[in-house]
Design a protein around this nucleic acid. Sequence first.
RNA 1: GCGAGAAUGGCGGAAUUGGUAGACGCGCUAGACUUAGGAUCUAGUGGAUAAUCUCCGUGAGGGUUCGAGUCCCUCUUCUCGCACCA
Length: 845
Amino acid sequence: MSNASSSESSIHPVKEIEAHFPFQEVEAKWQKRWQNEKVFAAPDSGPEKKFYCLEMFPYPSGKLHMGHLRNYAIGDVMARFYRMNGCRVLHPMGYDAFGLPAENAAIKNRVHPAEWTFNNIREMREQQTALGLSYDWDRDVATCHEKYYKWGQWLFLKFWEKGLVYRKEGLLNWCPDCQTVLANEQVVNGLCWRCDSVVTQKFMPQWFIKITDYADELLNDLDKLTGWPNKVLVMQRNWIGRSEGAEILFHVAGGEKQGTEIPVFTTRPDTIFGATYMVLAPEHPLVESLISGGSQEAECRAFIEKVSKMDKTIRTDEAAKKEGVFTGSYAVNPVNQEKIPIWIANYVLVEYGTGAIMAVPTHDQRDFEFAREYGLPMRLVIKPADAPFNSAEEMTEAWIGEGIMVNSAQFDGTPNEEGKKNVTKWMAEQRIGGATVNYRLRDWGISRQRYWGMPIPLIHCDRCGITPVPEDQLPVDLPRDVELTGEGSPLAKHESFLHTTCPKCQGPARRETDTIDTFWDSSWYFLRYIDARNTEAAFDSQKVNDWMPVDLYIGGVEHAVLHLLYSRFFVKAVRDIGLVDFDEPFTQLLTQGMVTKDGAKMSKSKGNVVDPGEIIEKYGADAARVFILFTSPPERDLEWSDQGVVGASRFIDRIYRLVLSYADALKSSSQQDSGNLSEAAKNLRRACHKTIKAVTDDIKDHIGLNTAIAKIMEMVNEMYKFTENDAIAESDFPIFRDAVEILLRLLSPFAPHISAELWEAIGNEGYVISQPWPVHNPDFLQTDTMMLVIQINGKVRGKVTVPADADGEAVWQAALQQEQITRWLNDQEPKKKIYVPKKLLNIVV
RNA sequence: GCGAGAAUGGCGGAAUUGGUAGACGCGCUAGACUUAGGAUCUAGUGGAUAAUCUCCGUGAGGGUUCGAGUCCCUCUUCUCGCACCA
């Protein structure tokens, strides 16, 4: 390739550019300018198309980790991309600042949780700034700030008015380490989600939010979430756990409790005639009265004692042995008046259904095993066609498939699926049962017996009962002067907080001393960002309706049934309260993969933590961003590689040298493309426009940030190839100039600092981030010739270059010119020729 | 056990959805420039082979097709989720 024949008409690079991108000064320079000039302020009005880009806000634990870096890098590319594409972008950041670690740190280091938290926020914010993230910092929130939780409390009162808050005493998940109760969602495999301690059960009163009122809507609306990963939808579906069935009323037969109702839930009402015994959970409230004074009392008490000591993980392990004890009492099966024994057993759970089951050993595997173990009677009631058994005695396992009802009085001969409906309908007529829907989802327990959280704005008055704090008295401030010991609720010991006057009767009263689950705070922060400095309201409904829903939400999958479920519920509730008018908060959800090292999640205990701060210091933010985006697709796990960052940093340096070595020429040249271009220049232009299209499609269609970067790298390689003879013909230079500008614009979402710097260095005014995203010109993709693959019997045997408009016959003729092809053809007449336009010709012989 | 996803060079990963497998990057090899190189540049790099011939090659085995990493069947392994849910 020869770009120039004489030095007068060609442009040479500056030879001495061998430097590295001086990221320290340059990155700081741009970060300062972006911040001072509020470049990333989100406009509440302007372009019609809005893009709300959100990353899950962090808990301010002190320093960013690689997961954060990845999360924010992805979000930042998307925010910057849509910004350049003409959207008004809302890209905020804040801190999920209430929570136990602050309290634990306070106990350990004798520093106030507030101080610890705000120091950490400062530190993390510095690191986020150093990453060059395009946040609108004027909208930041910290959930521990009274100006934030004031409105959290206000919203709580709205929930209260709506009847979504109630108090209940019951067995609750207790984390002995955190010294507080946990919601069901926060117990993972029997362990505390935060500290991995074994969760025990404790009987105590606490506050609940009626998320179950929304169970059906939360389930049904999952179908609307087409932008969510299927995995998360499945997890939420399982968590809600809707199952249709029937509730059937059994009664105690004989004894003191004669006639007491025992409702059971079953999904198999068609098997009711096969119910040969009944089982209550050991914790079932009726058990005490059933066994008390009876012949089985001692045995039952011993059993209950044993089960209660068993931890839940072991007890609910499927492999655990099914054990139980007869209570001595009987119940009546309402469909046939049969007297059946009532047992208690470890395989029935008090928290699911009604805590009691009708046992049908022939058609439920658990009941089958239990009945065989304890010699309980069995009766076949569903008989499959060509059954290998004729009676219960011949069965080796429960039959849970379809069949015809037998031994079932008037229902005999009915196919069981039809029987389910018929039996339920008949029971409803007889007033002994009816259709019902049961959910696995429980109400959301929000009381926490800890200090560093939002005070629940309720007052206990001996005369007036529980009374909400009047709105004009909000916020209920979290007192600063507390003694933190890690034992007992700190607020309960704080006299001046505890004692107050009743808003109704003005008499002495006590404040609620539980604080709220921090998931309450994070269930609406994305609404507050929209109107973060509003002192008159939680947010302006109109603004929220305008910006919401979040167009892209990015975070880890660990919140699939925690934060993401609570937030969906919260939005539905505030919609019904009348504050917003949309149903779902997050249109598209991207669950980013973990960052691993040596194949394992980074963690202090494994000693495989790489500190993002050190990486930024050593290689710069742009290199760190490029590496973490390039190495793996966003949703997949990413294995950290020190070598990989070096590669990213080399890429940045290569661009720096390439552009700077022509900076002066680029600065002074403004001439237009003369139309008199060399082949090389045309090729370069084609490569650039191909890259524009590919990068744009990758980002828009599937957030393919790794491949987008790969394609920019290819383009840079093309540019190097173009300049490899050093001189660029003057007539070709406009193309090179275009290439540089295209490169910098494509690069700017990924590596914003170097893009901004070089944009300026080549003599442009303003910010590259304020430039429109490049649009490819299809005309420039055209070629005069095309290269096709010639296959013989499906194997590649050669390549031909033909005019772009060549048809199959022309390609065939061109192929015949090649010795390699004719050798393979060996004078045979092709049986068939398959021509795929612009791709290949396959010759079958 | 059930459900979802995955398996491609030494490594991370590409492949326009049935059309040149291994883009891009790391690593490695050789060379250039260097006092030096962990800077930079050039060339090479799936395996077999003397070979730019050719053969083999996308977890394993079968199938559909002119043509399969991609579609179908069987199996293996791994990851994640659910897991006595009545």
